[in-house]
Every structure is written in structure tokens, then in C-alpha cells.
Design a protein around this nucleic acid. Structure first.
Lengths: 195, 195
DNA sequence: GTCTATATACGGATAGAC
DNA sequence: GTCTATCCGTATATAGAC
């Protein structure tokens, strides 16, 4: 069901979201005005409301899209048998998914405070599903006898924080390739949890 | 040189900063107004300007005080000989310092974007000194042959992100004591970097 | 040192013309 | 679908009375 190529709403909607994502990542949701977003796209502020009912929904949609894409990509991971292999897949997947999306990571982890309570609950539930996926792998490894840690839930949170923290220092023009980063972090993760 | 106990500016200044810290941690710098801060303290907005020249300086002072206290406390750590012992001291220190200060951690890591360029550079330099302290320990451990990791600098960043991430899930009324958290994380850190 | 009042600017969101 | 114009609320910061 391809739409007409020339359709404006097909192209302007994404441009609005791209501009909003970039500006919010840089300055923060509360510090960015609808006028700024409109200016970035090259339109007037009033026209934005053809693409979002309000500013809050625009933020929510950005975060929701990120989490939906993350969970969908996670689902496509090959489900290997051994926990160690599954943990390596998860670790490399997390890095490969997040490193090319610094703005989404920034917004998704920094703007939770600015979501309405209902929207927050929805994002939080999706994040929880992601954390649980890692926790499942860790528990499987414990059951196998391959992993050993003091607290499985806390370890899952610790590993995700460590991996997501890459966005604190990573620069696309820096000295490290994504593949190298994967190797460094997988070494840390593996040693931290194995017996 | 003790000042008079009844002096107002000795007591109101800290109250302003406490209120600002709490509100900014909860809602974000850009979302909090000077009127809100004043209301929390029980004064009018104009009176705040007896305690800070402007809102930006108020934010900067909160972050600067946190970093100064962190570096001062770090300096007081006993300097043991073996790298493994020093790493354990650092790990437990980081947790013990940050866990009771969730608002400072939140503000210091989330509001960097809202600092003026000059203020940002000063905070960043202090943060860098803290990261370097950990990196020094890791290098010492490598020289000893006690530690082994793929990239020392990246590992320092990874460990700090993992430890600071405690603030993402820790609740004072939760199931875990600070001592237990230290044990869990020290186990992960030790295994991740030792040979 | 705190108040009230105010200068000045900008915010989100909407109405109606084209 | 986009524009201009505007409603109405709130922002930071300052001035001057007490």
C-alpha cells in the first residue's frame, strides 16, 4: 500500500520528529520551544500542530518509538542455547543498537521526568521488559552453573548501566570502532558474571 | 570565627540551595522557576537574588559544591599499596558517597547541558580528575600484573557508569542495605578487571 | 533582607484566512 | 497544510518602598 511519493505529510512528519529529537537531546525538553522546532524544520509554530496534538505527545512519541524499535530488534536476536552465547549476543546487540543512536539514548534516559504519569508508566513498562530479557539470560546461566553473581536483578541493572554509559564518552570521530568497543565491553561483562 | 547564630543569611542561603537542589532533581533545571524555589523556601522570588546573582549561577554552585565535596572526600581515602585494595576502597567509597545523595547525583549528571560553556568546562575538569583517579588505580594494577583489561581508559568509564547507575534503581526504603550493595558491586568490579 | 510592582520577553496553543 | 495574528499565562530579573 505505497502512498504517493509527493505527499507532504509523509515527509514533514518525520522531519518534525527528527528536529525535535535533535534539539531535545541537545538542550532538554523543557528548554526547547515549539517555535525552535518549527524554525529548524522551516515552518511556523502553528503548523506543528498538524503533526502532534501537543508538545508532551511529541516527546512521548519519540521515546515510545525508540523503545518499540529496541524491543523489536531484541526479538530478532537468534536464540542460542548456552547462556554465555546469549549474553554475548545481548551485549553486542545493546552496543550495536545504542551507539548509532546517541540522541535517542539521551532523550530516553534523561527526559523521563518530563513525561506525564500515564506516559511515564508506558515507557517504564517497556524498559522493564528489556531489563527482564537480560535478567532471564543471567538466571539461565546461573541454572547452568556457568554464571555466578551475588544478586541477579542488581547485576542486570549494573550491566545495562555500564553498557548504556558508552553514550557518555563515545564520539563517532573518536579513536574506537564499534567492533572494538564491543570487544572491550564483552570482556568486562563476561568476566564479571562467569564463575 | 563563628558567626552569630541568629544570622539570617547563614541559614537562608543553604535553605535556598536545598530547595533548588530538590526541585531541580525532580523536575529539571529548565522546568523549575525561581518563583517555585522561592515558594518552597517561603519567600518571594525577588528575595532570591540576595543569595545568587542569577539562576545559572545557582545551578553551577550546586554542581560545583557536589564535585568539590566528592574530590575532597576522595583525597581522604587511605592510600593502600596494592592496586586490588585501592580499587576496593574506591568502589566502596563511590557507592557510600553517592547513594545518600541521589539529588546531587541526578543534577550533576543530568543538567550538564544547561550549564553555560564556561561553567561546563569547570565541572567537566573536576569530573575528569575523578575519572583519572580510577584510571590510575587500574594502571597500577596492570603494572602489578594483578589486573588485565582490553582498554584502561574505557574500563574506567565503564566502571564509573556501572557504579553511578545505582541511582537509577536504588530506593532508601528498598530491600538492600548500602553494605549489601557494596558487596554486590565490588564482586562485579573485582572479577571484571582481575586476571 | 524582604516585600510589591513591574519591565520585558517568551512560552504553548488556537482561530481563521488562504 | 501553512500562514499570520493573537490569547493568555508565565519566565527572569530589577527598582524602590519599608
Amino acid at each position: 500500500m505505497a502512498r504517493k511519493q509527493g505527499s507532504h505529510s509523509d515527509i514533514t512528519g518525520p522531519r518534525v520528529r527528527d528536529a525535535a529529537l535533535r534539539l531535545i537531546a541537545q538542550h532538554g525538553y523543557a528548554a526547547v520551544s515549539m517555535r525552535q522546532i518549527a524554525g529548524e524544520v522551516g515552518m511556523q509554530a502553528g503548523a506543528l500542530y498538524n503533526y502532534t496534538p501537543d508538545k508532551q505527545t511529541l516527546l512521548f512519541d519519540l521515546m515510545k518509538d525508540h523503545m518499540v524499535a529496541l524491543l523489536a530488534a531484541l526479538k530478532d536476536l537468534p536464540s542460542r542455547t548456552e547462556a554465555l552465547a546469549r549474553l554475548e549476543d545481548f551485549t553486542r546487540f545493546h552496543i550495536r543498537f545504542h551507539v548509532p543512536r546517541p540522541d535517542q539514548v539521551f532523550v530516553s534516559y534523561m527526559e523521563l521526568r518530563n513525561l506525564s504519569p500515564e506516559n511515564f508508566a508506558m515507557i517504564e513498562a517497556m524498559r522493564r521488559r528489556y531489563e527482564d530479557a537480560l535478567e532471564d539470560i543471567l538466571r539461565a546461566g546461573e541454572a547452568e552453573g556457568a554464571f555466578d553473581m551475588k544478586d541477579t536483578r542488581v547485576t542486570a541493572m549494573a550491566l545495562i548501566a555500564m553498557l548504556t554509559g558508552i553514550s557518555n564518552w563515545y564520539r563517532a570521530d573518536g579513536r574506537l570502532e564499534t567492533e572494538t568497543i564491543e570487544t572491550i565491553y564483552w570482556d568486562l561483562v563476561r568476566k564479571a558474571v562467569t564463575t
